[in-house]
Simulated assay, not measured.
Amino acid sequence: MRPAPARVGDPVDAIDSPALVVEIDAFERNLAAMDAFARSHGVRLRPHAKTHKCSAIALHQVARGAVGVCVQKVGEALALAAGGVRDVFVSNEVIAPTKLARLAALPSDVQLAIAVDSVVGIERLAAAIQASGRQIDVYVEIDAGQGRCGVPAAEAGALARQVVAHDGLRFAGLQAYHGGAQHLRSVAERETAIRQAVAMATAARAAVTSLSIDCPLVTGAGSGSFLLEAASGVYGEIQPGSYAFMDADYARNAPLPGSPRFEHALFVRSQVIARHAAHAVVDAGHKSHAIDSGLPTVWGRNFEFRNGGDEHGLLHPRGDEPLPAMGDTVWLVPGHCDPTVNLHEHLVAVRGGLDRGVVEAVWPIDARGRLD
């Protein structure tokens, strides 16, 4: 493991580069805003931890009112549980018996839940849980519009009936997350997509209750749409993740009227290592930030960031601002926070701003690389 890029008490200028930095004042304001929103709308908040992959941050979120966290991988669940998180929902399908056995082997004080969308998944989960002697919450996932995992609404009842037929499995409700809606840029596009997701969730719930099976909860929603699900009267739990950090891609969304405003809180600290007549070069390339949602933006400076390859980023001026000098710090806002976090081993939490702040904590990204 790479040594941490900073120590508690270091000034911000002492952080090694490239490094992933959390501006903790903005981060805490983001958490407080989402917690207040969930409370005022009467919905449970279960943040998606695939954004940060960090048990320290998950515990911050739970301390501020979250009921637990979501993850996408069994390995993430194991890492966060080892870090002290006690309520974890694997909001994804897992069918490998070896993975299910590892999940079932978690300590009994960890409240577990998992999504299913097939009889095969239910049967294999039931076998793993029966061997462990524990109980697990099960959510039937419906395809809320993305065309990925999940069954049509009409089939939700039949799968719920399969779940309740097994000892050790408790039917907890419906997973209805529309990931494809999160980055639709216009308000109208997102409203249309979530209106359809709500209709599908409503139909799926009816398919379940028509079989005299109680449907305790519909859960879903992300940072681009959570206001719409919360206002629907159908969803009882929301699962936003990126709100804690906010990335450059989410910043391109038109804000939903009435939604809390979230601040950029995740940055890559880079340093100018070369300077030429028309551009400067920083030490943060593709190994430091994901580019699936576009290149990072430059924070507080009028430069365009251009692709320089694995190890380098190129800064080109957009106006009259002079290029930064050799050794200057340049702060980058990643295009997509989730995979950017997965490239790093530590998050450096800075209190007091990016100009004069001090390192308050260094958080290991304990679920980094947990692809299993």
Rank of each mutant, 00 (worst) to 15 (best):
S232P: 03
N92Y: 14
I213H: 03
V330N: 00
I15A: 12
L323G: 07
S242Q: 04
V333G: 07
I291V: 15
C149P: 02
R370N: 10
G353M: 11
V69K: 11
G357S: 06
V119L: 13
S91N: 08
M34D: 01
V234P: 02
D372V: 10
E229L: 14
A181T: 02
V69H: 05
V218E: 05
A361K: 04
E93F: 12
V71W: 04
R46Q: 07
A77M: 12
V140M: 08
H166W: 10
T297P: 09
S225K: 04
S17P: 12
E23V: 11
G65D: 05
V69L: 12
R269Y: 01
K287H: 15
D137N: 15
R275L: 06
P339Q: 06
S242M: 04
V362T: 10
G42D: 12
R148F: 07
S259Y: 04
L227I: 06
K73Y: 05
S212E: 02
T192K: 11
S223K: 00
E28N: 14
L103S: 02
V119D: 14
K99L: 15
E189W: 07
T51D: 08
L314F: 12
L347I: 14
H289Q: 05
S17T: 15
D167R: 14
A160P: 02
L371M: 13
T340P: 10
Q271V: 11
A101V: 08
G357N: 01
M326P: 13
H264T: 02
G224D: 00
R275A: 14
D143S: 02
G84F: 10
A38P: 11
V85Y: 04
S242R: 01
I129A: 00
R2S: 13
V359M: 01
R44T: 12
H276E: 15
D372T: 03
R351D: 00
A172D: 09
V85G: 04
G42L: 08
W331C: 05
G309A: 07
R161Y: 06
E23A: 14
V268T: 03
S210K: 13
H276L: 12
G147V: 14
V140C: 13
A349N: 08
S55T: 05
Q146T: 15
D249W: 04
V272G: 02
G353W: 05
N253S: 12
P324H: 07
A265W: 00
V94P: 07
A284Y: 06
P11Y: 04
E321F: 04
V298H: 12
G65W: 01
G168M: 12
A156R: 14
G121V: 08
M326L: 15
G9V: 02
H178L: 13
R368W: 01
R190S: 07
L295V: 03
D366K: 09
G224K: 00
Q72V: 09
I194V: 08
F262Q: 10
R185N: 10
S210L: 12
L266V: 05
A207S: 15
D25W: 03
T192F: 14
A19F: 09
Q196Y: 05
H166M: 04
A207E: 00
L174E: 01
A254I: 09
